[in-house]
Write a protein that binds this DNA or RNA. Structure first.
Lengths: 129, 129
DNA sequence: ATCAAAGCTTACGTTAACGTAAAGGTAAAT
DNA sequence: ATTTACCTTTACGTTAACGTAAGCTTTGAT
């Protein structure tokens, strides 16, 4: 709510190191203001970091995550760029669909394995009686 | 259906290099039979590879992917191990839940951005008339 | 018989995403 | 005043997950 954060504020909130946040800046993903040398992060910066980390949790590279984050602030005004952006969105959407499918299958598989485990445990208990 | 595959068979089917498959063997994730020096992959090997690659698409490390794959063939018979396995399953399940949530949010965001894009394009077309 | 395709091992190279250490500046608390 | 707790930059180190190249063997096809 305060609209400005220190680097360690964000580091604590999102459970990353300050090194990581500075690295993201080196890679052009963040560009906080400065008071003297010290970095000052706005709510916009904080949101960008949040989006980057969300991408990372899905296994995206920093470059891919950056692409997605940059979609939120187009900046490009001509029709071709807009169309290119829409195409990128479509690509990412399909990747997400695939991941979602993978997750569903994996969840189902895990349930199956758990079931077998529990049955095996029941057998073991019978043995010990 | 043939129950045995060459390394390049699998490489083509799953769109990876043979180097990748051999690397997974080095890391103990696969252990194909041999005819002389040549590797021969069974359906079981093929399934393991498929599972590993599914894990990779979700951003898991090879080690994590390996853990999951090994759940499918418990091998351990004592109760403690079974309980440990069930705990691991629960952990992975929660990670998958989180990823699924991330995906839903991201899909929603992408739709939002696309909407804005399309509106901007409509404006541009009006200008050009 | 030889030639191309595919297989093998060994080993060094590469890249992303940080970790870690050194050396220093600033500001508040004791 | 000096300790504590931040902040900074620079720079070298590390690890996972392969890529790539060299050199050799095996095998099916012509």
């Amino acid at each position: 709510m305060t609209d400005h954060y220190s680097i360690s504020d964000l580091a604590k909130e999102f459970d990353v190191t300050t090194r990581t946040i500075r690295y993201y800046e080196d890679e052009g993903l963040l560009s906080p203001l400065r008071r003297g040398q010290t970095r000052i992060y706005s709510n916009r910066d904080r949101t960008r970091l949040k989006l980057i980390l969300r991408g990372r949790r899905l296994g995206l590279s920093l470059e891919e995550a950056g692409q997605i984050v940059n979609m939120y602030t187009p900046g490009s005004d001509n029709v071709e760029q807009l169309q290119a952006l829409i195409d990128k969105i479509e690509q990412h959407r399909h990747q997400l669909y695939r991941q979602r499918k993978d997750i569903e299958v994996m969840l189902k598989d895990l349930s199956e394995v758990e079931k077998i485990c529990r049955q095996a445990m029941v057998e073991k208990h019978k043995e010990n009686q």
